[in-house]
């Protein structure tokens, strides 16, 4: 009896969040999941027509553009998140020292996330301009010649997209890790240092494990978000040149909101959801195995 009440009490912590989420999303989720088994094309007044699994079959087996966009997303996403994580961790470690002017440095470093992504992408498009852009102007001043064509080359364009994403989202890692570092108890570090451990050892064996949960959460959130990468690509390259920067969210957006194949877009979205779930679970499992080992 008592344990039942205790259980109920514990559940009451999560109930508000769960109920709120269910109330908000139940209708859209059921609706779009149903829709993914139908043909519904807003361009023609035919209404819903049952499609069975044919939307999914097409996405899995014959839509090569979808497959290509998945690979592109993988390349851009993994490089962006890794870059952001490493830079963010480095900056957080530096900022967790005792520094004069730390407040102002931190504030300045967080500024990129405050700019609306649409404006950021437009600004970067201007900065990347081969002739009138500020980046190539600086390269010219430093004597590096005319500078590359940042968005116009199919080889460089994905990298340029990664750079904009990293510029904007590195502060997220930095702040989360900084907050994590601030709440770590100091004693283990000091005793380890007294015991003669080198600072890299302390970092690797004491600091990092304590940050682990924050790191996992931040990495997962960014991975999920980078798969939804859309506005930046939309404005910087529209997915070009060729297919070099066409991310899966951009493609799904086109299918749903430019071509208005709403049913097919829903099935692409659920496939994408399945892929993200598998990746995220795999990611968590690998990290957990590490913990056991």
């Amino acid at each position: 009896m008592k344990s039942g009440r205790k259980k109920l009490k514990r559940y009451s912590f999560v109930l508000p969040a769960v109920i709120l989420l269910i109330v908000i999303t139940i209708f859209p989720l059921v609706y779009s999941l149903t829709l993914s088994f139908f043909h519904w094309d807003l361009r023609r007044p035919l209404g819903w027509r049952f499609a069975g699994f044919s939307n999914y079959a097409r996405a899995l087996f014959s839509d090569h553009r979808f497959h290509r966009s998945l690979i592109t997303t993988g390349i851009i996403g993994v490089s962006a998140v890794l870059l952001e994580f490493l830079l963010g961790l480095g900056l957080a470690l530096l900022l967790s020292r005792k520094l004069v002017g730390k407040r102002i440095l931190t504030t300045l470093l967080v500024m990129p996330v405050m700019i609306s992504p649409v404006v950021a992408a437009l600004m970067w498009r201007m900065l990347y301009h081969e002739k009138y852009g500020a980046i190539n102007a600086i390269l010219r001043l430093l004597g590096f010649g005319t500078g590359p064509s940042w968005l116009g080359s199919p080889h460089l364009a994905p990298f340029s997209v990664v750079l904009v994403d990293a510029w904007q989202w590195t502060p997220l890692f930095m702040m989360i890790l900084l907050a994590g570092l601030q709440s770590i108890p100091i004693e283990p570090h000091e005793s380890a240092l007294v015991d003669g451990a080198s600072r890299p050892q302390v970092f690797w064996h004491i600091t990092l494990p304590m940050l682990k949960l924050s790191i996992i959460a931040a990495l997962l959130i960014r991975l999920v978000d980078v798969i939804k990468l859309f506005d930046t690509v939309f404005i910087l390259t529209s997915g070009g040149p060729g297919s070099s920067t066409e991310t899966v969210s951009y493609y799904v957006y086109l299918v749903g909101f430019r071509f208005f194949r709403v049913g097919y877009a829903a099935s692409l979205s659920y496939l994408l959801l399945a892929i993200v779930v598998v990746i995220a679970l795999g990611f968590l499992r690998i990290l957990r195995r590490r913990e056991v080992g």
């Binding site: 999560v14 969040a17 769960v18 989420l21 999303t25 209708f27 859209p28 989720l29 609706y31 779009s32 829709l35 993914s36 997962l220 959130i221 999920v224 978000d225 798969i227 939804k228 969210s249 799904v252 957006y253 299918v255 749903g256 909101f257 709403v262 877009a265 829903a266 979205s269 659920y270 994408l272 959801l273 993200v276 779930v277 995220a280 679970l281």
Partner: peptide, 19 residues
């Protein structure tokens, strides 16, 4: 439960925006 909550962030908005 925690994974279900995380999954709320995963679905592309294109799928849910019309509903």
């Amino acid at each position: 439960l925690s994974f279900w909550i995380l999954s709320q962030r995963m679905l592309p908005p294109v799928a849910t925006i019309i509903p």
